[in-house]
Computed example of a mutant assay.
Amino acid sequence: MQSLQVSAPGKCILHGEHAVVHGKVALAVSLNLRTFLRLQVTSTHELHINLPNISTFMRWDTEALKLLLPPSKDSSLSRTELDVELMKKLRDFAGVAEGSTDTRSMAVLCFLYMYLCVFSDSQVLPSMTVSVWSELPTGAGLGSSAAYSVCVSAALLSARGTISSPHTHQEETVRWTEEELELINQWAYQGEKIIHGNPSGVDNAVGTWGGFLRYQAGKITPLSRVPTLRILLTNTKVPRSTKLLVSRVKDNVNKYPTVMVPVLESVDAISRLCEQTLAEMTTQGASAEHYSTLEDLMDMNQHQLDVLGVGHPSLSALCQLTLARGLHSKLTGAGGGGCAITLLPPETDESGVREVEQELRRLGFDCWETSIGAPGVLTHSPSSFPPNVSAILAEY
């Protein structure tokens, strides 16, 4: 195998953000804005990583990297627990200060750690160039780091031969077996630990399996046979702290339990009703009534999130603007700014969508028309890789 191409989707929360912290159901969904990776085997005795989205281009001598691995062959590196000693060596090697969390440093550490772990039992570390480009904005709560970790995991495991290589198949895009996906997910979760410290595991699971996932009290359950829904995704670009917003909701729940606990119960009910509606859309066929229910649930959930204290004037303006055009929106993620999703039912007037996009951009927001419920990690033949992505990655 001389080269391979993989991609993985981002994620957003359809319903249940914040309530999930209090043990309620949340529905996480794959977002068909994807991260793309191309791996090329070389003979340079060097490891290259190119990350044009964050202006990061690094290279290392593979023999110098080999010295960082435990000397004993019995010291296998776990795919379920981070090796603290190796992480310390990598921080020193890459010049990343302890406690540093900047995007570029974390992306490099994540890549180097997975590379060394996956190839830890190789006599000679392979030379390769790995280039990654993403449609996902960073720091927007859309699972960009998880999509990156999933792509890196899948590519390195394929290159190692631990999972099947795309060159063993004839199809243009290929899914791995369930066992292989589980292995990809386990390594991607290690990458998420490096980047985020204590992740829930939801983002990398969505990036691996795609579709819709139900999350409650630490348990992640993929929902089978669910529809793909067309949406408009908007990034208000208003910065926010997830930690502070989660704390705000917790304080409100403690201060006003008789008010807030019923709101959390209501959010939980909306997540469950949405899950039921999605199942019906698959088994019975999607009807106008189903879409009307989904729109009602989005409106109600947005009001609940305002009550919980995680709304923002930018989000209110967005919801009012889209509603004036007959479209229904809600925040996705932590709130307090950040991103929102707008449902686009099949009968939506296309010219109206273009006008909404223009008005949102006039407010200073970024917009993407995309879909939720997209497939998880995929391998691509060179011909099936998006031409614009191939053109971008060909530069590196």
Rank of each mutant, 00 (worst) to 15 (best):
25 V>C: 05
343 L>P: 04
340 A>Q: 02
281 M>V: 08
319 C>Y: 07
38 R>I: 07
362 R>W: 09
106 M>T: 06
106 M>Q: 15
237 K>P: 01
272 R>C: 07
340 A>N: 00
291 Y>P: 06
211 G>L: 03
205 A>K: 01
6 V>D: 00
335 G>N: 04
31 L>K: 00
330 K>T: 07
297 L>R: 01
333 G>N: 06
394 A>V: 01
323 L>W: 05
38 R>N: 14
312 H>F: 03
73 K>D: 11
385 F>L: 15
150 V>C: 10
166 P>E: 03
332 T>R: 04
7 S>I: 00
324 A>H: 09
130 V>K: 03
171 E>C: 06
51 L>C: 11
169 H>W: 10
374 A>H: 06
152 V>P: 08
10 G>T: 01
128 M>H: 05
9 P>A: 06
203 D>V: 01
244 L>C: 06
73 K>G: 12
36 F>M: 03
58 M>V: 15
89 K>I: 02
184 I>E: 04
154 A>H: 11
222 P>A: 07
180 E>R: 10
225 R>P: 00
370 T>P: 08
63 E>A: 11
376 G>L: 01
92 D>N: 12
238 V>D: 05
239 P>I: 09
358 Q>A: 13
249 V>G: 13
238 V>R: 09
228 T>I: 15
132 V>H: 01
254 N>H: 10
124 V>E: 14
200 S>E: 00
132 V>E: 01
147 A>C: 11
282 T>E: 13
292 S>Q: 14
244 L>E: 15
